[in-house]
Design a binder for these strands. Sequence first.
DNA 1: AAATATACGGAGGCTGCCTCCGCTTACGCA
DNA 2: TGCGTAAGCGGAGGCAGCCTCCGTATATTT
Lengths: 177, 177
Amino acid sequence: MRADARRNYERLLTEAGAAFGEKGTEASLEDIAKAAGVGVGTLYRHFPTRQDLILAVLRDRFEAMAATARDLTCDDPGRALREWLLAQLHHITATRGLTAELAVAVNNPESPLHGQCEALFSVSHDLLGRAKETGAVRPDLTQADLATIVHGIAWACESDPVRQERLLDLFLEGVLV
Amino acid sequence: MRADARRNYERLLTEAGAAFGEKGTEASLEDIAKAAGVGVGTLYRHFPTRQDLILAVLRDRFEAMAATARDLTCDDPGRALREWLLAQLHHITATRGLTAELAVAVNNPESPLHGQCEALFSVSHDLLGRAKETGAVRPDLTQADLATIVHGIAWACESDPVRQERLLDLFLEGVLV
DNA sequence: AAATATACGGAGGCTGCCTCCGCTTACGCA
DNA sequence: TGCGTAAGCGGAGGCAGCCTCCGTATATTT
């Protein structure tokens, strides 16, 4: 890849991330191109469809999430699981405007991003397995349950991390007495 | 209102409901007008903005929801609450494509639809109050918690009622052992 | 320095949004 | 029954964003 091409690619990715965060996935691609200082043609060559651009932005974010997962150093499996779910909530919120796309990727094996999810799934799987072994969580709980509820909560109070945490805890502890 | 105007209004509402259900809130308004057998001008006169049309469709759905609420006849307050939440899930799912709008209405007091929500809130409030009195649910639970989590779940598995029910039950019973 | 492969960018065709205004029609009144 | 008019109708047209296409510019190679 030529140097100028790489430079434009990076700038487009940065601007797209900002634009999607501000205006959601419907942000004008022409504006993104303009912000990156290139013509629309260049944008479309690098990212033939809006979807491609969204996916490229998300790919970046997955890295960060996976890094967080590796850094989890909590001994108590129950707590570790909670920490991990909370970290996911923060990441999803930081990816504002792309929550819906993320949820699709997580729930739909057809998604081109599903592969990226696998890495995160295996983290969840491990944490969940350990938590089950120690009897910290109910044995019928699945990793898919967790992924879905986390996205649901992130989406339902996108801009309010305090409520997110509260709902997560309600989910973990239960509502019925 | 003239008879023809009323007729067109109704048809537009019907077609809009169908279109939004199929294609989401981004459905083409020109197509909706065509489907209703009127020109776009007529559509825009009745519903000056897309938002107005969406809100009008939702208003209809709220009726149905309120009716369901009135029909709840379960003695055990804990069960009654669960039934009500489940009924809400079904209604929200039936309003496919408008879930996001609904969530906004519920969470944002500024929304023109917020008034419609009040009726439902009072039902929730009553059921929740009774459940708390009998000690069926934790006392710090709020009606807003319920509204938000129900929308989150409905959104996160929009097309899978079975998973919705499962997640609701996980939420009610809790995950930690 | 020349050759060439690669990338750039914006004009242009298309679709959908929304407005505006001349045409049509339902309805009340004689 | 027939007429006048307020109310309603509908689509042409201007605008914005999407995406394609291809002539021009430039990085890289020899």
